[in-house]
């Protein structure tokens, strides 16, 4: 687990809603947090090295871009092969998230979760079939769960002031 010091926490809190949309955003941010552009950039680089910062990027709205079908595909994959196969599934261009999770038998026999997006359910199904081919005999059972409604969606936030 990584320790985040007070300054890093301040940086994270100041940018949770986003980065200033100006040609020199880190200089503006530095002013906000009472530091220099150079120091802000060096802290961000350190956070990226630690894996705390993944990247500076944009998150597209899948629905607005015509990717309105999303299915959570779930697979019961042989424990000895799941890491190697999971890496392959995670590398597929249409898979947004791919995780190994514990099973909850008997209700839930699946250990590999791969989120698949597509324009239509047919497209999602054909992508699911591609995953099935890749997993081959290592997979004993699978299912797909379509989202029918978004019940809540808020950004993930770290609490302010805590440590």
């Amino acid at each position: 687990m990584t320790r985040i010091d007070a300054f890093d926490r301040k940086l994270i809190e100041a940018t949770q809603a986003g980065l200033p949309l100006v040609p020199s955003p880190f200089a503006v941010l530095a002013e906000e947090v009472g530091s220099t552009e150079e120091h802000v950039l060096s802290r961000f680089k350190a956070l990226q090295m630690q894996g705390v910062l993944r990247r500076i990027a944009a998150a597209p709205n899948h629905y607005a871009l015509g990717m309105s079908a999303n299915g959570m595909t779930v697979w019961d994959v042989d424990d000895d092969q799941v890491s190697q196969l999971g890496a392959k599934i995670g590398a597929l261009s249409f898979v947004t998230h791919c995780y190994l999770r514990p099973r909850a038998r008997p209700a839930w026999p699946y250990n590999l979760f791969a989120m698949v997006h597509g324009a239509t359910r047919d497209e999602v199904e054909s992508k699911r079939a591609e995953i099935s081919v890749l997993l081959g005999d290592a997979c004993r059972a699978s299912d797909i769960l379509y989202s029918t409604r978004i019940l809540k969606k808020t950004g993930l936030r770290i609490s302010t002031g805590g440590s």
Binding site: M1, G18, Q50, R54, A59, N61, L156
Partner: peptide, 17 residues
């Protein structure tokens, strides 16, 4: 227009503790 939902740093909350 909400074509993009967010722009900025993406953090791994698990890595932050």
């Amino acid at each position: 227009a909400r074509i993009l939902t967010r722009f900025g740093p993406f953090y791994d909350a698990a890595a932050m503790g």
